Simulated assay, not measured.
Amino acid sequence: MFSLLLLSGAMFALGLDAYVLAGLLPGIATSFNVTEGAAAQTVTAFTLCYAVAAPALATALAGQPIRRILILAMSLFVLGNLLSVTVGNFTLLLISRCIAGAGAGIFAPVAAAVASNLVAKERKGRALGLILGGMGTGTVVGVPIGIQIANAYGWQSTLLLVALIGSITVIGILTKLPAIQVAPPPSLRARVNMLIHPRVAAIVTVTLFTAIASLGLYTYIATLLTGMGLGSDPSMYLWVWGIGGVTAAFSVGHIIDRTSRPDLVLLIILTILAIALFCLPLTGSGPTLLSFIPFLLWGAMGWSSLAPQQHVLLDLQPEHGSIAVALNSSANYLGSAIGAILGGLLLDNGLLVPTTLPIAAGCTAVAAAFLQVTLLNTQLKNKSP
């Protein structure tokens, strides 16, 4: 049990680091004298390396003892956060975020595999739930606390907290985690090769567009709130977004099981997501119940969109399920990176203002929904006699 709690604590640090930067962008922009659009590329660096560099590094580490891989991955993650605090220019900050993202991307899938092998078969679901719960808690509880720490002591203090938690888990893994054998995560080449299947490619494209809309916009949540007149402290809205996300992520599986139609569930999710994003600029000029609802739905729909895709991919590619799911995960983080890049370009070149970013994100969600409708129609035609 201690080993599971240890891995869950590490995932808490990963969840905190992955989502807290969105609330730290104004402070980072001020420290390095760059625009918030430019500062947002720290999120791009983290998520891009999580999506692309981590699978490549995982291939290089294949065959190494699992405990060594976890220690190396978490050490990279800690190093990246420590460098983020100490670097003196923006380019080095981007490099440090790449290092942190690569470490996180290697650690997360291996930790999930280790957790499922630490317990009996009938308890694997609970073990994986504990791991996911660690990341979810890092988002729901850790991010608002991290923002408050940043407001009091500077954004660097929050990343120091992340590095501290990561360092504690490195010591714990080194001294307490038993030596076990698990299958290595799928390589980048294996993930890319999966794209030769047209339906897999289409499903993953829906995931990509969904992440561009949801996670891409999330990167600019502090900028968005300021532009909407909802205050410069995003803590409450980040908490609402996260609580909606975690609740929906743990609930959507029951809905999928009851309906046995994950593809239709996803279409409903994408429709509600688009509506929520379009409604964001229409909320009031202060923190009211009405202004929280679109953020709650945004978080809930964004987080719950992955589970239906995983179900469809596992049914479609039962013999290569782990590769298909890993590809979908990479697409999710790649979409986050692309969304952050596009948002920065649109804002810095005056093509959009913060209050119109949700409209662009909503249109992207509509595009994802349209592609999902196309997939459903194709599936119906294929089933027709």
Rank of each mutant, 00 (worst) to 15 (best):
L5V: 10
L5E: 06
L6G: 02
M11V: 02
A13W: 07
A18S: 15
Y19K: 06
V34E: 03
T44D: 06
F46A: 06
A51L: 12
A51M: 08
A58N: 05
Q64K: 11
R68T: 15
S75D: 07
S84R: 07
F90C: 10
F90R: 06
T91L: 12
F107K: 03
V110G: 02
A112V: 13
A113D: 11
A113Y: 04
V119Y: 00
A120V: 09
T137V: 15
V140H: 04
N151G: 14
G154N: 00
W155R: 03
V162Y: 03
V170C: 13
V170L: 09
K176Q: 13
Q181M: 05
L188I: 09
R191H: 10
T205W: 03
V206T: 04
L208A: 07
I212D: 00
Y220M: 02
T223N: 07
G244S: 12
F250Q: 07
I256N: 09
D257S: 14
T259G: 10
D263Y: 02
L266H: 02
I268Y: 12
T271K: 06
F278W: 02
G284S: 14
P287L: 15
G302D: 11
S305W: 04
H311T: 13
L314P: 01
D315T: 11
P318K: 05
H320D: 11
S322W: 02
S322T: 12
A326Y: 07
N332D: 05
Y333L: 12
I338P: 00
I338M: 09
L342G: 00
G344T: 01
L346Y: 00
L351H: 10
T356C: 00
P358G: 04
I359A: 03
G362E: 00
T364S: 01
A368P: 10
L371W: 07
Q372M: 15
Q372E: 15
Q372F: 02
L376M: 14
